[in-house]
Nucleic acid binder design. Sequence first.
RNA 1: CGGGGCGUAGCGCAGCCUGGUAGCGUACUAGCAUGGGGUGCUAGGGGUCGUGGGUUCAAAUCCCGCCGCCCCGACCA
Length: 491
Amino acid sequence: MSKSLPKRSEDYSAWYNELVKRADLAENSAVRGCMVIKPYGFAIWEKMQQTLDRMFKETGHSNAYFPLFVPKSLFEAEEQNAEGFAKECAIVTHYRLKADPNKKGKLIVDPDAKLEEELIVRPTSEAIIWNTYKGWIQSYRDLPLLINQWANVVRWEMRTRLFLRTAEFLWQEGHTAHSTKDEAMEETTRMLDVYAEFAHDFLALPVIKGIKTANERFAGAEETFCIEAMMQDGKALQAGTSHFLGQNFAKAFDVKFADKNGGLEYVWGTSWGVSTRLMGALIMAHSDDNGLVLPPKLAPWQVVIVPVVFGNDNEALLNRCKELKSSLQKAGISVMLDDRDTQKPGWKFAEYELKGVPVRLAIGNRDLQNNSIELARRDTMEKSQVSLDGIEDYIKNLLDEIQTNIYQKALNFREKQTRKVDDYATFQRLLDEDPGFILAHWDGTPETEEKIKNETKATIRCIPLEREEEPGTCMVTGNPSAGRVLFARAY
RNA sequence: CGGGGCGUAGCGCAGCCUGGUAGCGUACUAGCAUGGGGUGCUAGGGGUCGUGGGUUCAAAUCCCGCCGCCCCGACCA
């Protein structure tokens, strides 16, 4: 294994793949398209989960769990949804294996064990959940119903990439039911805001909130809201979606409620989700050619202490490291003390840079005598000598500063790579030569959108929620446009 | 599903064209030295060369089939 990563500037894709593996986040498994998330990668995901879970609960949601399998008849009930996901479903057709009569020690699918009705491995859970909701909702008193589920789903993708697109992935999916359209719409945008806040405050990732065009809308939704982030190669990554489902699923699964006046009405629904894809976003947004750069709020270890040992007389030094560790922990900082004598300090430095630990403290006898420590920031790679007195407060502040700095860096990059363009030639040239977000006028038709996609591989990422009222003309057809929409090539 | 590539030691690869004792780097084990940025030297262990068949005195190498994976496209969170 070579010691250095591929360079972002030379091969962004190879850099990403290598980084994921070398930083011990995940690896490909024996199952096509499915990854193994390794302990270090999973620790980051757990931090995301904990934070999001808290935010969901603060906004009134409860967790529940629904089955992995969806009977085909339920799956097909909401036609748009079924059609949208049909071509990437895994299907269970049998429930038993038996010994192969022709090959000793091998198994075959028992043809006598065919299921009467096939089971779809959920690509998303609206069907099974709305079918369940039918039994839970009778009256306006049962509403709103605010449920979230942490689960795995399967989408049989043609081509997969660790975290960004895997055949099986982990996610959360919120599914809510409301008595009025306004309330459901309010919920949809509330959860979009939760996602945007999470991206901003924890992922240190600036995102653009917007509405998807009809082409890009979730199958079965009336309206899809999204947050879009920019990666360091200028490509867009959809980091989360929140769907206003209207009464589509209520009608498909016959979920009605008695209102205050004794009338019977269909329920209004929403669904919203983020996935392990956020890991991909986190990696691609901040990391550099030395490895991961993790925002302190999501780093499994915010600080790593590396003792720099000489000879055998290290007891005092190691004791001092342990004291330091516990005093930092008391200050609410998560700390890794790497006192292994099997690896050398230089090796550890490189290792923790690769793993993106925000702050590294190196401490040797020389430092002890000066009552100071060598501190290295991962985000800027700067090293400095810092006094051990008051080190806890110093590091707490520094972690905040790093969190902010990482965000600011990503924001600066996004702003630099976001341009307003008015003619199609410039649009095409920029996508090839200096990729990023492009704000351009579009005539609002699916045909023009499709044409642009076919010709440039760029899609409308969203119609930004916060956009200036700026009438103009479509860069392709010259027809009138109410305002600019956000274009980019996307993951 | 179309295009390209790869399957040889835990990992990364060479060897294949031109068939003849299976190699390198790294990791691993041991010893000695070293020790503030991926230590150095020495010795050692580890491989049915993806799989099935064929050609041949002889196959990692040539031929045919199969399987798997990766990358690029179309599709998609």
